[in-house]
Amino acid sequence: MLYMLLINTDESYYGTLSEEQMGQLMGEYMQFGEEIEKAGVQITNHRLRPSSSTTTVRVRNGEVLSTDGPFAETKEQCGGYYLIDVKDLDEAIAWAAKIPSSKYGAIEVRPIWVMDEDSGGQS
């Protein structure tokens, strides 16, 4: 079963960290990366550039409207994700809880909608 672990954090938090603290956080992420790699559950992961570099695109009446900034102007923004393949929600939650940012941000665990799997609907 595929789950997307979306990492939501207050971006201003990073500005409050000293160089040493930032280094420590990076170290934690490296360690986590090794662990999840070794467990063989990771499909992919990416870190996203800050939301200030976001462009939001909408098409209205055939016209492409691009605006600067994220879709939702919330304090917490998605800063990266892990796509994992595990047995069930409990395993996904366990991995989410190990992501270093879970200690100050929030990890959203979303099951991936595999088109084939549910196409028969509820029987």
């Binding site: 079963m1 047995k87 069930d88 929600l89 409990d90 665990v109 099951p111 549910d118 509820q122």
Partner: peptide, 15 residues
């Protein structure tokens, strides 16, 4: 329960 695949089980001791 179905879509997020919440396991149907008694959690293991550590949980």
């Amino acid at each position: 329960i179905r879509e997020a695949r919440i396991p149907y089980r008694v959690p293991p001791d550590h949980l």
